[in-house]
Design a protein around this nucleic acid. Structure first.
Lengths: 210, 210
DNA sequence: GTCTATAAAACGATAGAC
DNA sequence: GTCTATCGTTTTATAGAC
């Protein structure tokens, strides 16, 4: 029993420390880039000695891989899906709303991903080549089906997906620029709803769904 | 005269070296980030000794500033403008086409800019606060005028600008991902025209202009 | 204006005491 | 599992010969 307790306690410290480290690392990687984020700066932000960071993750590259995996998993779960059941209008509306909400709630996740792609997707090539390509093809087929059925106008389904991705993620990746232009310190709930309404409106009309 | 010639020659070497260095630096900064791009890696890419790089730019930060200025100037000149003379349809069409062409022809410029914004726009805060905010307000007023005149449907002009920016720049910043998904090695002229046609079509219809 | 050699600092990673 | 001290390397930047 005492051994069980100790194991649990130890496991807890392990998990808690790892969560703290990953959170600190994510922020540092966003702010400074992979090379600019030092193990020391991650340690300082996590409020742990540098050696502990390397005790848990062995080296800096492992920290980054863990952050990347962690981030992709969270992002994939949050953005929902495009499903055939309710027709194109509801499907696109729901997808836009989910992606906009994710962008406003987890900008760092989108930024980590964006920086990875911009720099050449060295750690994500397989991800795009297998999982993502498959997803896009599946959804493109669904859009094409709706187009052939006369349920929406004839727009390129693949580029439509790119449009929704870019327009929604923009509010995460470029938040600094957008806030400066809008002359605000932070986004508020009302901004999120306004963006969802704007993008749904213009994209649905663009697809002949309004 | 011989002194004039020498001055000219010297000036030429100076300019040529600086152009070579800035081009190499831009590529390295995109691929490795600010901290990841070393003076040595820039020197190697420019095919010059490291000391020469620092002879021309004194330190690494100066190289980055020069790249940033250079890039912004080029980008600003290339994307054209939104002008009132020909009405909303032609104005938006021309702006989209210019931005898409710039994105496909100079992806590195867009990437440098994107990474700067994502990381917090430390070197661009003033640029967004003065020049860019002014530009957006001016164009938003123009869109609002068209809306009030019944020439286009009532969409938020500021978010419309964000939409056009994000959708067009996406093809520069995320080129790696897009090419992987489309299963292509490179973009071709036909891709550029297809993107222009797609984005013009869907955004103009979204604005009630088709 | 070009290039080599090197000083000075920063960084990743490890050893080993507690 | 925590932390200090330190090693080896990389990197920025400069000094100085050509």
């Amino acid at each position: 029993m005492s051994s069980d307790n100790q194991t649990k306690k130890t496991g807890n410290i392990r998990v808690k420390s790892q969560v703290k480290i990953l959170s600190a690392a994510r922020t540092e990687f966003v702010l400074q880039g992979y090379r600019g984020a030092t193990v020391q700066s991650i340690a300082d932000r996590a409020e742990l000695p540098k050696a502990n960071i390397l005790y848990y993750f062995k080296n800096k590259e492992n920290i980054y891989h863990a952050v990347l995996e962690n981030t992709l998993e969270m992002w994939d779960q949050g953005i929902g899906d495009i499903v055939p059941d309710e027709g194109p209008k509801i499907a696109i509306e729901k997808f836009i709303a989910a992606k906009v909400r994710m962008s406003f709630n987890h900008p760092e996740a989108s930024k980590i991903y964006a920086m990875e792609i911009i720099q050449g997707a060295q750690h994500l090539k397989d991800y795009a080549r297998t999982y993502q390509r498959q997803w896009v093809r599946e959804k493109a087929k669904l859009f094409q089906h709706w187009i052939d059925n006369g349920e929406m106008v004839n727009v390129d389904p693949v580029h439509l997906i790119f449009l929704i991705w870019s327009a929604t993620q923009h509010y995460a990746d470029f938040d600094t620029q957008i806030l400066t232009i809008m002359n605000q310190a932070d986004f508020e709930e009302h901004d999120v709803e306004q963006v969802i309404a704007f993008l749904s409106d213009i994209i649905l009309r663009g697809c002949g769904l309004i």
